[in-house]
Design a protein around this nucleic acid. Sequence first.
DNA 1: TGCAGGATGTGA
DNA 2: CACATCCTGCAA
Length: 193
Amino acid sequence: MLMKELEELLNLDTLSLSKALLGWQLRLISLEGIYEGIIVETEAYLQDDPACHAYRKKTTRNAPMFGSEGTIYVYQIYGMHYCVNISGNKEGVGEAVLIRALEPTKGIDLMKKRRNTDSIRNLCSGPAKLVQAFGINKEMNFWNVKTHDLTLIAPSATIDEEQIVTTTRIGITQGVELPYRFYLKNSRYISKK
DNA sequence: TGCAGGATGTGA
DNA sequence: CACATCCTGCAA
């Protein structure tokens, strides 16, 4: 039954998926334990979008974006940080949703250790922060949330349209006007105000 | 509270 | 050379 919900989620187009992911939990089961956090902020990167890594063509780096729905795309940014994305619904189309912030729910002590901070609000309030907090790494590139230990758990309560803010994306220099960033209005765990 | 600067892989 | 980031340090 959960599988069915996940299938439905991943069959959405990338923009809808980006919005629909809010409230879902990202879960990683590792040797150390379970990490979980509620997705509170996402950004969509589409095919005809100049900020998208796959805007021009398929390359070694962006290949997971072209994978089947639910494919994990982990990339290194500025040579030192990593970010995690979930590929959208059409295999062969280079689109994905960037997970930008989580509200930590499980594995908080482990996250504090990895992030070297005691501030819960600072654990996962940024795309590279949450990757570090979970210990997500390049080995998980090309994983799929349907079949691997980095998965999505459905929200316990439905998310109202009213709770979602739609705005422009952060940290990009192209496609700055596109309203492809979504976050939960009342969350204290988003990357920026 | 705000911003400049640095670390550095990937691809234009 | 630009870039989907984060942290530190220093100025107000």
